[in-house]
Amino acid sequence: MDEKKRNEAYNRYVKAKIPKTKAWPSLFNSFLVGGIICCIGQGVNDLIMLWFPSMAEQTAWAYTLIVLIFIASFLTGIGVYDKIGKFAGGGSIVPITGFSNSITSPALEFKHEGIIYGIFVKMFTIAGPVIVTGVVASFVVGLIYLFI
């Protein structure tokens, strides 16, 4: 029997054997935690608007993001965010808090390799590709927008 056929057959067999992740409970956890994070964001924004009535709405949103990013970074630092992530999956990755976590966690991890070669170099190992994809995608969309 040739190897390619054997490998394909084996891959098919393994694929059938792998235990499947349960979709509905995972989705429920994701939306629950994601929703809670969004509610916290809205709450923070409302509080800022209440305490600083003269502030422009745009500026208030920026401060809200800063607060959320700080909270996520802090929770990463004390080792809580990865536990939330384990439970919530996409629910805690997609919001900006997930982005904050993806930058803080490598920075923490590689601090033993020094500030420049450790923290600075490794900080964007996970977030970097996201930023690149975002920039390229917005460029493409902008280009399309220019012509229609």
Partner: peptide, 17 residues
């Protein structure tokens, strides 16, 4: 974990395998 996968504190989920 750091050599083969992700930083420890990253909030990701592991597949069942």
């Amino acid at each position: 974990e750091r050599q083969f996968r992700f930083p420890l504190e990253l909030g990701n989920q592991r597949p069942p395998t």
